[in-house]
Write a protein that binds this DNA or RNA. Sequence first.
DNA 1: GCCAACGTTGGC
DNA 2: GCCAACGTTGGC
Length: 160
Amino acid sequence: MARKYWLMKSEPDVFSIDDLERVKVEPWDGIRNYQARNFMRDDMQEGDLALFYHSNATPPGVVGVMRIVSEVKPDPLAFDPDSKYFDPKSDPDNPRWLLRDVEFVVKAPTQVTLNDIKEAEGLEEMAVIRRGQRLSIQPVEKEHFDQVCKMAGIKKKDLK
DNA sequence: GCCAACGTTGGC
DNA sequence: GCCAACGTTGGC
């Protein structure tokens, strides 16, 4: 049973909902923002559900749901000099950057665009539409999660 | 490609 | 610890 709800952004050119559907489970790497990392480390739990959000897309919006399926663990890209996410200051004995594995749950029959969220009654407080909000991992209220799923045509049984 | 809004870095 | 310069995010 999921206890918390999240919204996690990815650029579809880099990693899309279709990519996740294909690989089923993916390490959510490349998080290089302390606030997002802290959410992953401190507040996320295995079994939590997350809205998969396409950023830098046309149009941007929620395209599916995934599940957190691992403990928090070091992000190996931080130690790979060839990666754009390499961080020479990250100590292997005390890794600065972390990730969790996510698992595909369901693709939204209907995408809920950023504009849909802005116009929806009841979603005014969602962080993703707050001005200047750039966090790639953000908590979502259960009520908001449920409403977005409903708008996306995702049924409760799809979230099993 | 532009640019507003943030976050980070580093000199002092 | 301040803050200017720089880098990044992400909508448009």
